[in-house]
């Protein structure tokens, strides 16, 4: 499933010039917006969620999963992958700094569950996480999925 969803247009490696969680969340959301999968309001809702709920979306060391509640602004279930050149702080006491970001936009309960399961399986593998932090090409990413 991840192989089909993480297409080249929603994946970026070694992204430079990101200094804040808001910039990181917007960057990961804009990839989905530019590819026509979500509307801008969803991107801003992800930023709002971060402000309201804090850094809990940093689910594991170095990994953030920003998301929001969809309301007609998610056109298709999608996910983006952003690997930062310089890890940044999200303000999480245990899991900072953040190196990789998967922005999730869910729609449709069944598919959304399947996506989370696939992502859990990928991130449950410590070797793969290390590789996700260092790989630099789409081909390498595809091999991990």
């Amino acid at each position: 499933m991840l192989k089909d969803i993480l297409t080249p247009d929603v994946v970026e490696f070694n992204v430079d010039g990101i200094d804040s969680p808001e910039e990181a969340i917007r960057f990961s959301g804009k990839l989905l917006e530019k590819s026509g999968k979500i509307k801008n309001s969803y991107v801003e809702k992800m930023v709002d969620s971060f402000h309201e709920l804090g850094p809990y979306s940093v689910i594991a060391p170095g990994i953030a999963l920003p998301h929001a509640t969809p309301s007609g602004d998610v056109l298709v279930l999608c996910l983006s992958f952003v690997q930062l050149k310089h890890p940044i702080s999200f303000g999480h006491p245990d899991n900072d700094p953040v190196k990789i970001i998967f922005a999730i936009a869910g729609v449709g309960h069944g598919e959304h569950l399947e996506l989370l399961q696939s992502l859990s399986a990928l991130l449950g593998n410590a070797d793969k996480i290390e590789k996700l932090k260092t790989i630099s090409s789409f081909d390498e990413l595809q091999k991990l999925l």
Binding site: E52, Y56, I59, L65, H67, A68, L116, Q117, S120
Partner: peptide
């Protein structure tokens, strides 16, 4: 539980 009830909480429940 999670902030929104649709992301991390679901992953955690499945685990």
């Amino acid at each position: 539980g999670c902030g929104l009830g649709c992301g991390t909480s679901l992953m955690l429940l499945m685990s």
